[in-house]
Design a protein around this nucleic acid. Structure first.
Length: 235
DNA sequence: AAGATTATCAACCGCCTTTTC
DNA sequence: CGAAAAGGCGGTTGATAATCT
């Protein structure tokens, strides 16, 4: 249907929100809740469309927002989640309390992508750039785009409706003794203290394997996560 | 100091899905 | 059951700030 119908009806304000508009929206929602978003602007006395109000509330005015810079732990979690979920920002955001999908998306596009490339990792596939480039070169040489197409298809179906896990990073490594676990690379030994502990506590980290914990001193480590961890949390 | 370039992030756009009538 | 409305999402844009030359 394209553009929201409410935008046609009258000349509505666009662009940055003024403090007065914010105040009106906050006051209205704290008092009455948002209910039907398309009705909010009228009820709150705003010259905005409902979608705009919803976005402003979710991304900026909600009281439970954390704001501020992302911690290295949060960044690592985003990288791990992106490896599994791809660009499903809203799903990623559900695992970072107080963060919005928009915020995470912005961080990814402006910062994390760059960092991953600097580390030699392709941000879209989470594989070493050398491998990705080599494949691109191969496909150029044989004048065929089959590999790229295959990769694109895999990227499109990170999490399928079925039970199979299709993201390339989620495919268990051939050498993995226990195919029940997926390996997730952790950069710079910044493993997420709270998350890894929670995962350990919940049985998601295989503590008998070569898995690291937050206290590990290894310079690089892998944590092994069971398929159930992803399926339960990301479906 | 000033102009150019780059980085950041709030907000919009358009599409798809779900809900309502 | 189909159409319209509403909700939700990801991609993209544009304004502003920060940094570089």
């Amino acid at each position: 249907m394209g553009r929201h119908s409410c935008c046609y009806k009258q000349k509505l304000r666009k662009g940055l929100w003024s403090p007065e508009e914010d105040e009106k929206l906050v006051r209205h929602i704290t008092k009455y809740g948002h209910g039907c978003w398309s009705a909010v602007p009228k009820q709150a006395g705003l010259q905005r469309c409902g979608k705009s109000c919803r976005l402003r509330w979710i991304n900026y005015l909600r009281p439970d927002l954390k704001r501020g810079t992302f911690s290295p732990q949060e960044e690592n979690l985003i990288i791990e989640l992106h490896a599994v979920l791809g660009n499903r920002w809203s799903q990623i955001a559900t695992h970072l309390p107080g963060r919005t999908d928009n915020e995470i998306k912005n961080l990814w596009n402006s910062c994390i992508k760059k960092k991953l490339r600097q580390r030699g990792i392709d941000p879209s596939t989470h594989r070493p750039l050398s491998e990705v480039n080599a494949e691109a070169g191969d496909s150029k040489n044989d004048n065929s785009n089959k590999k790229i197409e295959t990769q694109a298809v895999m990227d499109e179906s990170h999490v399928s409706a079925g039970n199979e896990f299709k993201h390339p990073n989620a495919i268990p490594r051939a050498e993995t003794a226990n195919p029940k676990f997926f390996h997730v690379p952790v950069e710079d030994n910044n493993l997420i203290a709270s998350d890894s502990q929670a995962m350990l506590h919940n049985g998601f980290i295989n503590s008998n394997s070569t898995t690291t914990t937050a206290t590990s001193t290894a310079s690089a480590a892998n944590i092994s996560l069971p398929k159930e961890f992803f399926l339960e949390r990301f479906n």
